[in-house]
Each structure stands twice: as C-alpha cells, then as structure tokens.
Design a protein around this nucleic acid. Structure first.
Lengths: 226, 226
DNA sequence: GCAAAAGTGTTGCGAGTACACCCATGT
DNA sequence: ACATGGGTGTACTCGCAACACTTTTGC
C-alpha cells in the first residue's frame, strides 16, 4: 500500500446468492429491478457497504431488508471488479454465498417490487449486470464446498432425517449417491446427534460444527479451503 | 443493488502475497514501509486500484513497479474489509496470490526503501495492518489449491525435472511425499511433455493448462474451486 | 581414464481401503 | 418411510523396494 497517490473513486457493494431448499429443489433469491440500469431485469439482492460495518454484516443487512431472516449462513466467495460491470460508475462487488434453512417470508416493498425464489435449473434468461456469472460461480463453489465441509446442514432445518441430508447432497451435486455409503460416511463422522423428542429417530447436527471445528468429508475429499 | 442511497466512502486496494522458490525453499515478498501508519514495519506489496483497470491488472501493475516481472500467475483469493483494518480510512483490500518462476531482480526506489524475500517459515514478528492474517490465509489456500490444480507449475521454470516438482510439493505441503507414487500420479495426469533438446529427459508442462482445462489431482482430491 | 556416486525416470508387488451394489433386519 | 447392518467384489491408493540409465564426481 503506497502513499501519496491519487486514486479512482470506486463504490463498494455486496451481492448475495441466497440458496434455499424450496419444494424439494434448490432455489435462489432474485429481485426484479425497478430502476435503470437493467430496469425490469432480475438481479441478486445486495447493496452498498455502509460506514463501520463488516462485509459479511453488509450482506446480512441487505438480505434482512428483503427476507427478514437472520438465521443464515453467509460466506464471501469472490470479488468482482471489472471496469464496466456497472455502467454508471466503477464498482467493486464482494459476492457472498448465503444459505438458509427454510424459505423465509419475503418482504415486498415499494423499493423492490418483486422478490422471488427461482429454481437454479430454470433461471431467467437475462440477468442484470454480471449476475449470471456470479450465480454460476457460486454454484460451482457450493458444489465443491459440499464435499469437504458440513455446509449442507445450513440448508436443512435444525432437525432432519438422513434422507433429508441425502436429498440435499444429490440436489446440489446433481447426481445420485448410494444411500448406504452416504449413511456410513455420515455416521462415521460422528457429528450427528439423535433427537430424543420423538420415537422415530431424527437428528440434530453437532453444535460444535458452528465453530468450524470438524469437517464431514464426503468421498475422501481433502482439506477445507479456508 | 439498491438505488437512491447515500453510502460510505471506501477506498479499494489490492494486496499481493507473492510466492517464489528461493534457495530451494518457499519465500514471499515483503516491503518495508517508509511512512506511517506502521512505518518501519514489513508489509505486503499492493496499492490503490486505478480507474478502468481490472483487480488482477492492478495487482500485476503494483507488483511490476517493485519487481519488474510480468510472467507471473495472479489469482484473487479473499477480500478483507473489516472497519479499522486501516487506521486512516475505511478500506477494502482484495488480496491476491502471486506465483513467479524465478526470483526476479528487485527494484529499490526512494518510495520503497526495502524490498526483500522472506522465508515463509521465518517471517518478521510484526507486520503492518492485518497482513499477518492475509499471509496465513494465502498459504492455506495455496496448500489446498496444490492438491487439485496445476498451480505448482507456476512456481517452476518452464523446463523442470520430476524431482523439481516433487520438491515444490513437499515445500508447500510441509510433508514428505513418496516419490514413486507422486511420479505415477503426475504422469497419469498426462500433462507432462518431454523436452527434446536434451538427452536426459526433462519436461515441459502442457500449454493447454494455461486455459485452465485439466487438473492434476494429487491424492484423489476433488473438484477445482473455480 | 575409470570407477564410484549421485541424479533421473520407471516398474512390480502387497497391504490397506474406498466405493457401489444387493440384501436383510428392526423400528 | 426410517435407520442400521452385513457381505462381496472391483478398483484404486500408497508406501516400499528394485531396476535401468545418464551425468557428475573423485582418485
């Protein structure tokens, strides 16, 4: 970081690709833009980073304004800063992956006329800015993370069956997985805690996972990224 | 991205953790700061993003001003934006990993009195800003990338022996690897091209790797991240 | 000059394991 | 529908060792 130089004025925003299981398939949240540029097109939720807030905080705040959820997993994954990605001004956008457990109630305001879940397999043909690229990259990253982190549990309710986890994994990876092998790997990880409030066994997830301690590795994949 | 809001003025910089093999061990490039804050402390090379340039371009430009190398691999890996990380103003820094093949000639100017290679295992005890954390994260990422991308070849000259690659892998991972197994995995990947200008076989790397097509997977690690 | 040493690349073998597939059992 | 376990066979990983060949080193 050198000193004594003039530099360009660049706006800093956050965008969030919010994933959620909706009708048993993977969806993401999109917002219909009201004003130009790209008026009428679908875009990712996001907005400017404000004074004295973390990037992750900014992502959560912007998301909360449209979905009213606070119990969600947020993780930064890439920063997009190509000149011209925003026709108005030079802009750098820190893109995040968001995961929530249950489809939250969406808040439709005058500012954002349309907020909707879209199945990942059937996105609108045209998206605002470079959001098409951002979504594709988020999906790729999510798929990779799935194999060496317990990230999938952030897409499930706090209590779930093995079949639920199995289903989420299949949805995201886009392939069918042998249930017996999957179940063995999952129980061997030692992260599942049987729920005791029902006769039929269901599970919680080990709360220590929230501290990022252990990782469940599907398919002998290797080290976590960061 | 909502409209019609006032937002904080945030400066955008890039920082680069430049890795290089130097005296057969892994080093990174540090610069001694001349002005406050952190005057006298060692810091990562970097600086402000200028008008109409890509983040990666900014990283390359800043690096070129101090090392005069252009043949290097640059990849963004994380963005640091916590308020207070720069005592002067709110700042967002897009951190990059840089890899170069041979230790380049360093350019000492009046602006940057000291530019030096430091072994990764013996860094200065105190670094400017949050650069300590950035370096740690870069090393973690590099180690992870090593197992499913051909990233290590960016640390080698264009012609090399299998022992060279083996050595680089051991340096970065910090453990010894069985040579025979390593050699099998490497040749099985089908990315090596025998050099024909010498009797003793040495290798080039398949140039198609520059297009990010194939990955060499050491130890059955999984998908590339992006 | 010549033999030993060091460096480079390759192959065989065996123990252990990961994984898919099928099936049986209890709740 | 849910959870668990057994059993089998294929394929593969990994570490150890041996081997062929070249270049360098030392006496």
């Amino acid at each position: 970081m050198t000193n004594h130089t003039t530099h360009a004025t660049i706006s800093v925003t956050v965008d969030v690709v919010l994933f959620c299981m909706y009708n048993a398939s993977l969806h993401i949240l999109l917002i219909e833009r009201k004003y130009p540029p790209f008026a009428g097109a679908w875009a990712l939720p996001g907005g400017f980073v404000e004074a004295d807030e973390t990037l992750a905080q900014a992502a959560r705040r912007e998301l909360f304004e449209e979905t009213n959820v606070s119990d969600l997993y947020v993780e930064q994954f890439y920063t997009f800063g190509d000149p011209g990605r925003d026709p108005r001004r030079q802009n750098v956008s820190v893109a995040h992956i968001g995961l929530c457990r249950t489809p939250p109630q969406l808040a439709t305001s005058d500012e954002t006329p349309q907020v909707q879940w879209h199945p990942l397999t059937q996105l609108p043909p045209v998206l605002a800015f470079d959001h098409q690229q951002i979504i594709a990259m988020a999906h790729t990253r999510l798929r990779a993370q799935l194999e060496y982190t317990p990230i999938a549990f952030a897409l499930l309710p706090t209590q779930f069956t093995l079949a639920d986890v199995h289903h989420v994994y299949q949805q995201i990876l886009g392939e069918s997985l042998d249930f017996a092998t999957f179940q063995r790997a999952l129980t061997a990880a030692g992260v599942l805690i049987a729920a005791n409030d029902q006769s039929q066994p269901h599970f919680h997830i080990d709360p220590s996972l929230n501290d990022g301690q252990f990782v469940f590795r599907w398919r002998d994949a290797r080290q976590p990224i960061a």
